[in-house]
Simulated scan of single mutants.
Amino acid sequence: MSKTILITGASKGFGKVWTEAFLQEGYKVVAAARNIETLNDLVSKYGDAILPLSLDVNDRDAAFSAVKKAHQHFGKIDVLINNAGYALFGAIEEANEQEARDQFQTNFFGALWMTQAVLPIMREQKSGHIIQTSSILGLITLPFLGLYNASKFALEGFSETLAAEVKDFGIHVTLVEPNGYASDIWKNETHSKGIAAYDGIKKAFSESGTTGSFGTIEATSQALLKLIAATNPPLRLFLGKVALPFVKHHYEQRLAVWEEWAEVSELAHGN
Rank of each mutant, 00 (worst) to 15 (best):
E160Q: 14
Y198D: 03
D41C: 10
G128T: 04
E263G: 03
V29H: 06
H250I: 04
M122T: 06
S135H: 03
L239N: 00
A32M: 13
G9R: 00
I130N: 00
V264H: 02
Q105G: 07
N149H: 10
T4A: 12
I171W: 00
F74G: 07
Q24E: 11
L51W: 04
M114D: 05
E165C: 08
Q116V: 07
N83M: 03
I131V: 12
N40M: 10
A243P: 04
G13D: 01
I7Y: 00
Q125S: 12
V242W: 04
K226E: 14
L155Y: 01
I7K: 03
H250Y: 09
I130V: 13
G15D: 01
I131P: 01
A268H: 11
L145I: 06
W258S: 14
T216W: 08
V57N: 01
L227T: 02
L225C: 11
E165Q: 13
D56N: 14
P120Y: 06
Y198S: 04
L112M: 14
Q222N: 15
A196H: 10
A229G: 13
G13M: 03
E266V: 08
L225Q: 09
N179P: 09
E94W: 02
Q98V: 07
M114K: 10
N40A: 15
G85P: 02
S208H: 07
K152N: 06
L119T: 04
F104M: 13
E156G: 09
N35W: 12
W113P: 05
E218K: 15
K203G: 04
A154R: 09
K203W: 02
L147E: 00
I171S: 01
N149L: 03
L235A: 09
K187M: 11
L227N: 05
K241Y: 07
K69F: 00
P178H: 05
L237Y: 04
E94Q: 07
A154Q: 08
